[in-house]
């Protein structure tokens, strides 16, 4: 499947990655190569095969509804890039 630089820009934006023009060429090339590789899947007819999302068939285990966690804000926020009054700070979100 063909992939052009515009597609790569779009994907990069979706993934919040900034790609320079020179990188764009490299990525367009290598992503196209990888898509060629994965395109080999099409030699197998998988019609009607149920998709496998998990390696095992075991059902989801449910936990009891109990509060088991304590407050670790201080420790957690020691490693945060920017905090104030117990809040994580980010550049202004415009709605």
């Amino acid at each position: 499947m063909a992939l052009d630089p515009t597609d790569v820009r779009k994907i990069a934006e979706l993934a919040r990655l900034e790609i320079s023009d020179s990188e764009l060429t490299i990525y367009t090339h290598s992503l196209a190569q990888i898509l060629d590789l994965v395109g080999q899947m099409n030699v197998v007819d998988t019609t009607g095969i149920s998709p496998m999302a998990h390696p095992s068939d075991s059902p989801l285990r449910l936990r009891q509804d109990l509060v088991t966690e304590q407050d670790h804000r201080e420790g957690f926020q020691k490693i945060a890039p920017a905090t104030e009054s117990g809040l994580y700070l980010v550049p202004k979100v415009i709605e």
Binding site: E84, S85, G86, L87, L89, P91, K92
Partner: peptide
């Protein structure tokens, strides 16, 4: 939280 954080948004 959009108030009071000098042009920053606070996340709770």
């Amino acid at each position: 939280l959009h108030e009071e954080f000098h042009s920053n948004t606070g996340i709770d």
